[in-house]
């Protein structure tokens, strides 16, 4: 835990350092772009992506809790040799699905990806995620206003978060 906090603190310091260097060296150009982007992209769930634990991230993203469902099929390898690239997919037979999200429980930040599923799109997504170590992968499906989850443990031989 303290190691993670240390890492984050260092990262922040470096980012600030990089920012001031850019300010002096390159002028204001890089900064003109960033805030504008933040404003137009206000739907991006910044807060949820910052949460460390899976429970907090789910709460920040959806504001409610999920119940396990056997109507969600979570496909992930038993063992991932390379934690940097773990193929994970989800399909569900639930009706009225509006979003599907992926959480990796013991990553530095649990939320990995969140997908909006508009009407007419099949509730089935395949992607590739990074995993820091052996832990649970949780898929959350939002269907008809309710949250459902499926969980699978993936053993990771080499972590994908570096450091």
């Amino acid at each position: 835990m303290s190691a993670t906090t240390g890492l984050l603190a260092t990262r922040r310091l470096i980012l600030q350092g990089a920012a001031s260097v850019a300010l002096i060296g390159l002028g204001n150009l890089p900064f003109a772009a960033t805030p504008a982007h933040a404003a137009t992209n206000d739907k991006y769930p910044e807060e949820a992506f910052r949460q460390k634990s899976e429970a907090d991230a789910i709460k920040a993203l959806y504001g409610k809790t999920a119940e396990p469902s056997d109507k969600i099929k979570l496909d992930a390898p038993e063992i991932a040799e390379n934690g940097g690239v773990v193929p994970i997919s989800v399909t569900t037979t639930l009706d009225k699905v509006t979003s599907i999200s992926f959480f990796v429980a013991e990553n530095p930040n649990a939320l990995a990806a969140s997908y909006k599923i508009p009407d007419g799109t099949i509730p089935s997504v395949a992607n590739r995620l990074k995993m820091a170590k052996t832990t649970n992968v949780v898929a959350i499906v939002e269907a008809d206003g309710k949250l459902f989850s499926a969980t699978k443990e993936v053993k990771v031989t080499v972590g994908g978060c570096g450091g």
């Binding site: 769930p45 990796v104 930040n109 990806a113 969140s114 909006k116 995620l129 990074k130």
Partner: peptide, 9 residues
């Protein structure tokens, strides 16, 4: 629409 964090490969 995908919202991604840094944990995507």
């Amino acid at each position: 629409v995908a919202d991604w964090g840094p944990a995507v490969s």
